[in-house]
Simulated assay, not measured.
Amino acid sequence: MNNQEHTALLVMDMQNGIVSRFQHNQEVLQAVRRSVEAARRHSIQVIFVRVAFSEGYPEVSPRNKTFSAIRQMGGMTVLDEATQIHESFQPKDGEPVVTKHRVSAFSGSTLEIILRSKQIDTLILTGISTSGVVLSTLREAADKDYAIRVLSDACGDPDPEVHRVLTEKVFPRQAEVSTVDDWVNGLPND
């Protein structure tokens, strides 16, 4: 997977309201930062993905267990501080911020249109949480025939055992799994 022109790094759910729950795990946050820096150095498209809802939550069904709870508590709207990209990962010019309304980065977002318009066929996945956005996005991306790599140390999950099982046993069926350093070391020299 070295064709950088057709590759995108997805930085998923690295937004204030989610990153704040992972402040204790600085290793994951640092790994995501290293992946973003490496992608920028190697001219790989960086795309940020966040979850947010419109005022009044028209995207949230009462049957959706996760998001109906957010609707009841309030917050997580597109202008809410919790849905803004965390200051550690500020997008630069030309790095889209995609807003999704479900767990997968593809669901209810413009991600697929952006990928098609940029002729991206390879996705590098990072994000919080491994059992949420990373798993859902990986499954959908595999069904859409993208080549996929998961940067295991640039993904985090509230349950370390779930993270381990997914990255060691489940993800390798549909994606390459490596650390940020292994991925970066495999990129062509500047």
Rank of each mutant, 00 (worst) to 15 (best):
Q4M: 14
A8M: 08
L9H: 00
L9V: 00
V11W: 06
D13P: 03
D13N: 10
M14E: 06
N16A: 04
G17A: 08
I18S: 03
S20L: 04
R21T: 10
F22S: 12
F22H: 10
H24R: 05
N25I: 00
Q26F: 05
Q26C: 02
V28S: 04
V28Y: 00
Q30V: 02
Q30C: 02
R34Y: 06
S35D: 05
V36F: 02
V36C: 12
E37P: 03
E37L: 14
A39C: 10
S43C: 09
I44A: 05
Q45Y: 04
Q45H: 06
V46F: 10
V46I: 07
I47A: 14
I47E: 09
F48C: 09
A52H: 00
F53E: 01
F53P: 00
E55P: 04
E55Q: 08
Y57F: 15
Y57E: 07
V60F: 06
P62H: 09
P62S: 15
R63A: 14
N64D: 15
K65F: 11
S68R: 14
S68T: 07
S68P: 02
A69Y: 02
R71E: 02
R71M: 06
Q72R: 15
Q72K: 14
G74A: 06
G75F: 09
M76N: 02
T77I: 05
V78C: 08
L79S: 14
E81C: 00
E81N: 04
T83D: 10
Q84W: 07
S88V: 01
F89C: 05
K92V: 01
K92N: 03
D93V: 08
D93G: 10
E95W: 03
P96A: 15
V97M: 03
V97Y: 01
V98Q: 07
V98S: 07
T99W: 00
H101K: 15
R102P: 02
V103L: 08
S104A: 15
F106C: 08
S107G: 05
I114G: 04
L115A: 11
S117C: 07
K118S: 10
D121Q: 01
L123E: 06
L125V: 03
I128D: 04
I128P: 00
T130G: 05
S131F: 01
L135P: 00
S136F: 12
L138R: 01
R139F: 06
A141T: 06
A142F: 11
A142G: 01
K144C: 14
A147S: 13
A147Y: 05
I148E: 01
I148N: 08
R149F: 03
S152Y: 05
C155L: 09
G156C: 08
D157K: 02
P158C: 12
P158Q: 11
P158W: 03
E161M: 10
E161R: 11
L166D: 01
E168N: 15
E168D: 12
K169A: 12
V170N: 09
F171M: 13
P172F: 09
R173S: 09
V177S: 09
V177N: 08
S178M: 15
T179Y: 06
T179A: 07
V180W: 00
D182G: 11
W183Q: 14
W183A: 15
V184T: 07
V184N: 01
N185R: 08
N185M: 10
N189S: 11
